[in-house]
């Protein structure tokens, strides 16, 4: 059984392992732009990024885009031919230095084989892994072994209504949660953070599922007092959220 928290020193709400299990199943399957094996390789690269000395040095540099040694750094991780050096670099930057990612860098990647859609799916995997692994690290629990990938090809699905308005990548417009994407948000009630991954709708579904267990569901976000099923109230939640965001230098 995966995500079995019965040996945890702290009692863990059952909806949390259930959400983690669902993500592990999603991770192993082919996505829209990556195979199952590539998706699991992206997840593996997340774990290597947290130990990457080069990335720590690059994070301390004045500019991450003029810091030497990237080629050697990436060749150390590109060992199985599943991911290109640009894909590995994208994973490492999102994990270790996300605040200095620029549209120019995303565009340059797109000009050299890492399409914006593939980048979004990659980012969706990275951030989901981060949230699950960080939950374990926060509670000193061992990390769950990555799943065995499933065979199959990516489906190449891209919502027709996606367009490039703000940010580094195309997204659904506020009124674009229609058709196959009608479940992503209600009517025009959305926010840029919800739209951010929406050119890969399953990436949004994955983050909503995880957020519903680890933080709040979309409906729960309307509760500013004591959210149901939680031991901490909304102010306590937002103090934690705010300190993590501020420490990470996140303006949004």
């Amino acid at each position: 059984m995966i995500f079995d928290y019965r040996d945890s020193p702290y009692p863990i709400r059952p909806d949390i392992p259930a959400a983690h299990q669902r993500f592990w199943a999603r991770l192993a399957r082919p996505g829209s732009w990556w195979t199952g094996a590539e998706r699991v390789a992206i997840a593996s690269a997340v774990r290597s990024a947290t130990k990457c000395e080069y990335c720590q040095q690059r994070r301390a540099a004045l500019s991450p885009y003029t810091f030497d040694g990237a080629g050697q750094h990436l060749s150390e991780y590109a060992t199985d031919d599943l991911l290109s050096p640009r894909a590995i670099d994208a994973v490492h930057r999102i994990v270790t230095d996300q605040g200095r990612i620029t549209r120019r860098w995303v565009d340059d990647n797109a000009d050299h084989g890492l399409s914006r859609e593939a980048y979004v799916e990659l980012a969706g995997i990275v951030v989901a892994l981060v949230s699950i692994d960080e939950f374990h690290r926060a509670l000193a629990l061992p990390l769950e072994p990555l799943p065995e990938p499933m065979a199959g090809a990516p489906d190449g699905y891209r919502p027709a209504q996606a367009r490039h308005d703000v940010g580094h990548v195309p997204m659904l417009p506020a009124d674009g949660a229609t058709g196959n994407e009608a479940d992503l948000w209600q009517g025009n009630r959305t926010a840029n953070v919800l739209r951010a991954l929406s050119v890969v709708p399953d990436a949004v579904r994955a983050w909503l599922d995880l957020a519903g267990a680890q933080y709040l569901s979309i409906d729960g976000m309307g509760e500013f007092g004591q959210p149901g099923g939680r031991a901490i109230n909304r102010m306590q939640m937002e103090l934690v959220a705010g300190r993590v965001s501020s420490y990470n230098e996140c303006f949004y």
Binding site: G99, R103, A128, S131, E134, G167, H168, L197, A241
Partner: peptide, 17 residues
């Protein structure tokens, strides 16, 4: 919540929203 926002900041900044 902390783990969730370790993710959220990366979504926001990686997508440049």
């Amino acid at each position: 919540v902390a783990a969730n926002f370790q993710r959220m900041v990366r979504i926001a900044d990686a997508m440049g929203i």
